[in-house]
Amino acid sequence: MTPATITARNLDLTFETNDGPVHALKDVSLDINKGDFVSFIGPSGCGKTTFLRCIAGLEQPTSGDISVNGMTPDAARMARAYGYVFQAAGLYPWRTIGGNIRLPLEIMGFSKAEMADRVAHVMDLVDLNGFEKKFPWQLSGGMQQRASIARALAFDADILLMDEPFGALDEIVRDHLNEQLLKLWARTEKTIGFVTHSIPEAVYLSTKIVVMSPRPGRITDIIESPLPRDRPLNIRDSAEFINIAHRVRDGLRSGHVDD
């Protein structure tokens, strides 16, 4: 078995706020293997985004151990080990789509020729050919989010962290992007961490589903998906898919006993 790319052991994180301490993560332990597609699902406040930010080194856990590619998350961030996709596309309005995708490459000091190659390559991966010279406002929300995925892919990190990237999009666009994301994952063999609050999205995309619950934020269930890696959209009507979705729903409900 390959060593895990991301390991978390007994992770705890408490935010000090004006209303007192908030226990965002409690005793979170998880292994993510190379090439996994791991979804984090749970209601708001369950710590799924916080955990993703811990992996990215954007938050520091209060206690516990976490390693990314055998390094601390901060070292992994400085080694540019991952690409991060946020809830909003967050493209710079003053840069073209090509210019936005070039942003991380400029910061990391790639040569002009290499930048042009990589931009063309990732724009092809997210199916945005021909939009390089357009400005963000000229694109739909779904296309903007695809551009932000291309931006995260441009420097070819092994890990892709996505924080509810399709949360603001309508269901038809979301289905289409989910399908494209699976194809992209198959082509690039990235390790993906994906935060969502949609059960069908989590089940459809993931090899591993991490069910979380709030107050304090913790893992209530980890489901290894038996679905094949190659998944057509209509797999969502299969009995197996519905079974997994049931288990996810049960996990979410059991974490809600106090409500």
Partner: peptide
């Protein structure tokens, strides 16, 4: 905050 976080994920320095 999100735009600033994005630059942190690239490990961009202050002048950048």
């Amino acid at each position: 905050a999100m735009q600033l976080d994005l630059l942190r994920t690239y490990n961009a320095n202050a002048p950048q």
